[in-house]
Every structure is written in structure tokens, then in C-alpha cells.
Design a protein around this nucleic acid. Sequence first.
DNA 1: CATGTTATTCAGTATTGACTGAACAATATG
DNA 2: CATATTGTTCAGTCAATACTGAATAACATG
Lengths: 168, 168
Amino acid sequence: MNVQTITMTAESRAAADEFIESMGLSAEADGMPRIAGRMWGYFVIEGGPRSFAELAERLQVSRGSISTNARLLRELGILEQISLPGDRQDYYRLADQPYDALLQGYVERMRIRLRNAERALRDLPSDLPGVHQRLHSMQRFHQSAVDTTEALIAELREQADHHQQDDQ
Amino acid sequence: MNVQTITMTAESRAAADEFIESMGLSAEADGMPRIAGRMWGYFVIEGGPRSFAELAERLQVSRGSISTNARLLRELGILEQISLPGDRQDYYRLADQPYDALLQGYVERMRIRLRNAERALRDLPSDLPGVHQRLHSMQRFHQSAVDTTEALIAELREQADHHQQDDQ
DNA sequence: CATGTTATTCAGTATTGACTGAACAATATG
DNA sequence: CATATTGTTCAGTCAATACTGAATAACATG
């Protein structure tokens, strides 16, 4: 296999571990499994194509967990699967836009709440005191959140395009 | 007590229940207890000051749960506690800016990740191939998210002020 | 076709966290 | 002070979910 392995100093290794663990905790705060966050952190540090075997070894978790969480991160658009010619193993690397996915999920949750508010506005009579005012305020908030986040997604895409040009 | 109770038609009651449940599910998706979301939904519908007793009765949950989740929603700035003269019960109502709180929590989580990226940038040597590029990209993303969200918070505050003027 | 290698699935286990209900604390009122 | 009322705390229960490890499936290669 044509994947280079990197050696680190003990200090770097400790810093990397700390970062990986912090990503695990962040992931949990966002409702993902901790291991998914650790894998994500690992790829931020290590980058390039890595195999399941390396992951399982480095993070000290079962191959089953790696498999499950790799699928999750793949579906979220955070990791990309790579196959190397002449090698049957799966490799993964960090996606080009790993953070888009987070915003997409966020905006989707906001949209659900927006729709719930709108449905309640339709279904509840307007003579109940204050109900429509409060639902309307809920609707305005979520509409703003959706709009803002979508604008941010577009902006980040643009930025990324620029950087891609710079790198080449 | 000087709190008026509202009667609804069966259809309205069903719509209200549906809304309350959808808020429970949304809350769960955001990592809060379902009951907290239901309480929140209840106050969007009912608005004005309500006692624990009414809440526990309407939502069919224990007084313990109401107490715990009322504290949570209070700390998040979603509910406000009210005391009425000549009444020892606690009353709650929806806060003026219940959605600010969500954005504050969101921005705080983003800030934590931003700091984690920055610390890793400091602690990891720049000669590891690509690490700094990836950490820098992580930093840029979270900085944008923080900035955008804070701008949104400010904008919503302004909107709210306008509406307050309208209402008076 | 047999063998070795690797990813996935799944049953079982452990852990986490929500929820209840009873005990307790605080407080007003007769 | 005794009683009634209400909010909080906490031990225990239950449900959900993460994780493991073994079994299985898929596949390339000799």
C-alpha cells in the first residue's frame, strides 16, 4: 500500500490525543456517538487515506464500531470512501467540505420546527388569546435561522472554491 | 388565583396536542429531554402564567419531572418564573426572547470547537503534512458560524424591539 | 476451489440518561 | 405550633443506545 505513516514526537502525540478526545466530546454534545467524533478528529489530524485497521488500532475500538461510525460519517458527508487500485481494503479521508454537512443537518431541524409552527398556525383558531402572536414569533425566528444558515452555506462554498484555486 | 383557564374545541385540543408532541421530539433532536420540549410547546400554546399543578395535570407527568425541566428551561432563558402576590405557588410563562437562548447555546458549542482547533494549531508542529491546513479550515468554519449566529442574535433583538413598540 | 483478508451485521452487554414517586425542606395560615 | 401546600432532591426503575466480539458475507488471489 502506498500510504505513508507519520511519526510524531511524544508532545505532538499528546496534543493529537487531546484534540481527538475533544472532538469526541463535541460530537456527543451534538448527539452523535463519541467514537464518531474521535474518528473525525483523527482524520483532521491525519488527513489522507487511512484504513479501518489503522483506525481501530489507533483509537483502540472494535472493528464493528469503526464500520458503523464510518457509515454514519460517510452519510453525513464528513468522510469520503476511497479505494486504491490493487488493494481490497477500504480507505477513508476527510471530505472536501466536512462542515457543510453539519449545517445541512442544523437547517433541516430548523425547517421541521418551522413547519410545525406553520401547521399549528393553520390548525389552531385565532381567537385563543396570544396563540397566533406566539406562533408567529416562533415562525419568524426559524425562518430567519434557515435563511441565515443557507446564506452561510453558500458563502462557505465560495470560500472553499477560492482556496481550491490557491492550492493548485 | 387570577389566572384564566381557556376552553378549546376538540379539534383545537387535538391540534395543540400534536404541536406539543412535535416540540417534544424537536427538543429530543436537540439533546434536551422530551418533557422539556413538551413544556415549551405547552407555553407557546397557553402563554400566560401557569402553575406546576396545571402543567403536571395537562402533560400527565410527575411533579419531579416538571420541577427538573422547569429549572432547565429557566436556565436556558426559555421560561420565566413569576410569583403572584398572595399565592405561594410558582408560576411560569414563556420568556420574551425564548429563541435567543437556543442560539446562545449553539454559538457556545461552536466556540468550544473553535478553541479546540486553535489549541491544536498551537500545540501541533506545522511540519506534519496538511495538519495546519485542515485545522485552519476547521477554524475558519467555526469562526464564520460564530460570527453569523451572533449577527442573527443581534438582528432578532432589534426585530423584537420593534414588535414590542407595535404591541404597546 | 480453497484460503486468507476485510467489511458488515447482529446478538448480547454495559452505560447513560429520563422519569417516577416518595421523602424532605420550606413556607404560609389557622 | 400544627397543618396544609408546594417545590426540590434523590434513590430506584426503565428504556434507549453505544459498543463489543463473534459470525457471516464478500471478494481477490494462489
